[in-house]
Design a protein around this nucleic acid. Structure first.
Lengths: 338, 338
DNA sequence: CTGAAAGCGCTTACAG
DNA sequence: CTGAAAGCGCTTACAG
C-alpha cells in the first residue's frame, strides 16, 4: 500500500488539491460540507500528510534534536523521558544523539541535526567541550537552543540547570546538623561545572558553619565510579581516622564508600556518615540505604522542552526572545546512611 | 545566517544547479576541476543539503524510528546505545519513542513514525499489546520492521532476541551444579514472552536434572521490583525452609531477595544462593555481589540496526527479503551470591 | 466557496 | 562535460 497524497484524495472526490489541503487544515474559506467529505474520506483511507513536503513549505519539521553526553545514565535517561513526554504533548518527535562526552562527536551531532532542520536543539554539553563555535552556529541559524544540566556560560541562550552549589551546601549542612565535624569530599573531575559547583557548595557549608576545610580531605574521582569511592574510603580509614562523614559528588562513589565501610565493620552513620548525590535507583537498594540529593530529571526534561517551544513560537512570530535561566529545585533525601 | 541552497552555490560559481548537485554527489560526468571548485566552495560556506527536499526525490529519510516500552531501563538504554552507534556508522539518525508498555501509545507512535517517513522501524513490543494490526500496517507500507527483545510471533518480519529459555536453563543448571536441590523461582508476569520463557527454562532445568518442580516455589513478581523480591523471600524463609536457592526473573527481585536474606543473617550462597537475570549495574554493587545472566543489550542494538539496514538495501533494489530470526548469546556471570 | 499556479530545495532523465 | 526542465507532495497568495 503506497502512501496516499492530497492528489489521490482530490481525484477520488473530484475536487482540487487546494481544497483538499485547506479542508484538512480547517481553513475558514471551505464549506462545512466539503470539509466533512474530505475529512471523512481522509480518515477512511488513513491519509497522513507527507511531513517532508510540508516542511519545504512551512519550514517546520516538528522534530527536535537532543544531544546528551551519554545515554545509559540514569539521570539523563530521566531527562530524556521528560523531554519526550513534553514533546509528545505538542506532537513533536525527538531525535536523540549522544556525544559520548567528546567535543568532536558533539560538534558532528549538532551539524547533523541542523542539516535535518530540526526546529530546536536541546543540549547538555560534553565534559571535554572547550570551545563553542559549533554552539554559536546553532544560534546563528536561529535555531532555538536550550542547555540542560551542563551548559556553557559563554553562549547566549536559555538554560535549565540545578543549583549544584546550593544542593551541595544543603547536603553538607545536613551532615553538619547530624553532628558531623570532619567531613571529607569525594569530588568529581575538574572540568564539568557541576563537580566544581558541588565542591564549592561543600566548602561554603563548612565555612558557613565554622568547620575546618582541609584539602587532604578532598579526593578526586575522575571516573565518578564506585571503585574510586571504595579506594578513597580505604585511604580515609587508614590515614584520616578523624573523618566522620563523607559527601560524594555522586551516588556511585558513595556506594563504593558504603561497601568499604561495611567491609571494615565501620558503623554507618554513627562512625562515618555517607551522603551521595543524584538519587539513582541504587541509592535505595544498598545497605544501609544511601542519603542523597534528588535531581529531578524528568521535570528538567519537561521544562527544557517547554522552554524550546516557547522560544520557537516567539521566533515564528518574529518577536524578540528573552532568554531564561531556570533552576530546578533539588531535594535532600534522608535515608539510613546519615 | 540563512541556510544555503544549491542555487546559492550555483549563482556564486556561475554554473547550473544541476552541476552543483552532481559535483557534490560525485557523479562521473562532471569534470574533476568543477567538482573540486564546487566542493571547496561548499565546504567554505559550510553547505549542507536540505534533507527534506532530498527526501521528496529520493524517498530516503536517513531516519529510523525506535519504539521501546520504557526508556530509563538499563537494558533498553543499552540496546538504544547499540542502535545509535550502528546508525551513526551509516549516517542514520534515530527518533526514539516510548510506548510506556501500553498498546495505545505503541500504536500511536508507530503511526507518527510512518507519517515521518522513517526508512525503518525497530520495535520492542509492549507487554499489553494484544493485536498486531498496527504492526501489519508497517509491513504493508513496505517499511522494514525489526523486532528486538520482545516480539510478536504472529508478524512476518525479522527479529533479534535472546534465548530466554536457554539462558534461564543455564542459570538454573549453574545453581544445580553448585549442589542446590530446592530451587525457588521469582517469575515475571504472565504476559511478556520473556518471563514465560525464563520460567520454562527454569522448569526444564529442574526436569533435566531430575529435581522436583513445585508450584508453591514459584512466585509472580508483577512489577519485577525489589520490594516483591524482598516480600517473597520473607515468605520463603517462613514457609519453605527447604529452599536452598532462588532464581529470579530479573536483577531487581534478586536484589530484594539478597536484602531480605542479609537482614535475616542467612548465609548467601551457603544457605540460600541467589541468581539474577540481566546483569544490571546494581548486580555488581550489592553485597554479596549477585550472580546473573548477561543480556548483551548493546550488541543486540547494533545487530538490530544492521538487520534493518540489510533489508532496506535489498528492498531498494527490489530484491526479495528473507527475514531473519537472530538469537544473541547470553552469558552466565558468576559472582558471590552463588 | 473553489481552484490554477507558483514555489519550497532537491535529484535525475534527457538534450545538446 | 554542462544545463534546462520536470517532478517529489505539500501550502498559500491570488484570481474568479
Amino acid at each position: 500500500m503506497k502512501n496516499l497524497t492530497l492528489k489521490d484524495i482530490a481525484t477520488a472526490l473530484n475536487i482540487s488539491v487546494t481544497t483538499v489541503s485547506k479542508a484538512l487544515k480547517n481553513y475558514p474559506d471551505v464549506s462545512a460540507k466539503t470539509k466533512e467529505r474530505v475529512k471523512a474520506y481522509a480518515k477512511k483511507v488513513n491519509f497522513t500528510p507527507n511531513a517532508h513536503a510540508a516542511f519545504l513549505r512551512t519550514q517546520e519539521s516538528k522534530l527536535i534534536g537532543v544531544v546528551i553526553p551519554r545515554l545509559n545514565h540514569f539521570f539523563f535517561s530521566n531527562v530524556l523521558r521528560g523531554i519526550m513526554k513534553a514533546a509528545e504533548e505538542k506532537d513533536y518527535m525527538v531525535i536523540v544523539l549522544s556525544s559520548d562526552e567528546t567535543y568532536e562527536l558533539e560538534k558532528k551531532q549538532i551539524n547533523r541535526l541542523l542539516q535535518q532542520n530540526v526546529d530546536g536543539i536541546l543540549l547538555s554539553i560534553a565534559d571535554s567541550t572547550h570551545d563553542t563555535k559549533h554552539i554559536d552556529a546553532i544560534i546563528e541559524q536561529k535555531v532555538p537552543l536550550i542547555f540542560f544540566d551542563k551548559y556553557s556560560k559563554l553562549s547566549n541562550c536559555s538554560s535549565i540547570v540545578i543549583n549544584d552549589q546550593k544542593a551541595a551546601f544543603n547536603a553538607v549542612e545536613h551532615l553538619i546538623k547530624q553532628g558531623k565535624k570532619n567531613i571529607a569530599h569525594l569530588r568529581g573531575p575538574f572540568l564539568p561545572q557541576n563537580s566544581i559547583d558541588r565542591f564549592l557548595g561543600y566548602r561554603k557549608a563548612l565555612e558557613h558553619y565554622g568547620l575546618a576545610y582541609k584539602k587532604e580531605w578532598v579526593f578526586t574521582c575522575n571516573q565518578i565510579s564506585n571503585e574510586e569511592g571504595y579506594a578513597y574510603t580505604q585511604e580515609i580509614i587508614k590515614k584520616h581516622p578523624e573523618i566522620d562523614a563523607i559527601f560524594a559528588v555522586a551516588d556511585m562513589p558513595a556506594v563504593g564508600a558504603i561497601k568499604c565501610l561495611n567491609e571494615h565493620n565501620i558503623a554507618i552513620p554513627d562512625q562515618i556518615a555517607v551522603m551521595g548525590f543524584s538519587n539513582w535507583r541504587i541509592s535505595n537498594l544498598v545497605t544501609p540505604t544511601l542519603s542523597t540529593v534528588n535531581q529531578p530529571g524528568i521535570e528538567m526534561g519537561e521544562k527544557a522542552f517547554q522552554m524550546f517551544y516557547r522560544e520557537y513560537q516567539l521566533m515564528k512570530k518574529n518577536e524578540t526572545v528573552i532568554f531564561e535561566k531556570i533552576e530546578v529545585d533539588t531535594e535532600i533525601i534522608i535515608r539510613q546512611s546519615t
